[in-house]
Computed example of a mutant assay.
Amino acid sequence: MSDKNADIGAEYSEMIEEMNEAVAESIEQNMKAQAAFVESWTEAMSDSMVEENELAEGTEGYNQATEVWMDAAERMFERSADAAQGEEIDPTEFRDIWLQSANEAAKEIMGTSAFAAANGQLIQSMLDMRQQADDVGQETIAELGFPTRDDVDEVGERLVELERRQHEVEEKLDRILEAIEE
């Protein structure tokens, strides 16, 4: 009987050790994700020309997101303790805690005017870069002797004007022919 108890004790110890490793790995991954998030947010805020009040609101949003992460860590710890006490816990519950927390934290940050301002500046920068690349492309095409977009647009406008005039001439001719036939 003691061999059976020893086997059960060893299995239980092994299970607890695996759970502890899983929780530690989960917490480490969470900290890495949070550190990457903070680094990205800080870089975005420092690179942009965000107003002071927007920056304050952004910082408040970041603080709220941090609270969400801390609540998730606390829930993970509590559920790990429940599992250590023998409660059967579905492993997907741990994943769901982190996914829900990541969504809530993102909402806290993305809902701030600082985030909106930083995104607006990013989009404007991207549009400016696109315009510069487009200008360089058009200049290169012109230097190679090919028609540029402006040239094609001008030809299109002239064709529309010619069609309009042709239509007017056709209407006048129709009226003249009708007058002659009467």
Rank of each mutant, 00 (worst) to 15 (best):
M1T: 14
S2V: 11
S2F: 10
K4L: 11
N5C: 03
I8C: 00
I8G: 00
E11F: 02
S13Q: 09
S13D: 12
I16S: 09
E17G: 04
E18N: 07
E18P: 00
E18V: 01
E21N: 14
A22S: 07
V23K: 04
S26H: 01
S26E: 05
N30I: 02
M31C: 02
M31P: 01
K32D: 03
Q34N: 01
A35N: 00
A35K: 00
A36R: 01
V38W: 04
E43G: 04
S46V: 04
D47L: 10
S48R: 05
S48V: 07
E54P: 01
E54R: 05
L55Y: 15
A56F: 15
G58Y: 12
G58T: 05
G58M: 09
T59E: 11
Y62S: 05
A65H: 01
M70R: 13
D71R: 14
E74Y: 07
R75D: 13
E78V: 14
S80N: 11
S80E: 03
A83F: 07
A83V: 01
A84I: 11
A84Q: 09
A84L: 08
Q85R: 03
G86T: 00
G86M: 03
E87L: 00
E87A: 03
E88P: 01
I89M: 03
P91W: 03
T92E: 00
F94V: 06
I97H: 02
W98M: 09
W98Y: 05
L99Q: 08
S101A: 15
S101G: 02
A102Y: 09
A102W: 08
N103T: 05
N103A: 15
I109V: 15
M110W: 05
G111H: 06
S113M: 09
F115Q: 06
F115G: 04
A116K: 15
A117M: 08
N119D: 06
G120N: 09
G120I: 07
G120W: 06
Q121H: 03
L122W: 04
I123Q: 08
M126D: 12
M126A: 15
L127S: 13
L127A: 12
Q132M: 10
D134W: 12
D134R: 09
D135V: 06
V136D: 08
G137P: 02
E139P: 00
T140S: 06
I141C: 05
E143N: 08
L144H: 10
L144P: 03
P147F: 02
R149I: 13
D150S: 11
D151K: 13
V152P: 02
D153H: 05
E154D: 14
G156Y: 08
E157I: 10
L159P: 04
V160T: 12
V160L: 08
L162Q: 13
R164P: 07
R164C: 09
R165Q: 12
Q166R: 02
E168W: 06
E170Q: 11
E171F: 00
K172H: 09
K172V: 14
D174P: 07
I176E: 14
L177E: 12
E178M: 13
E181Y: 03
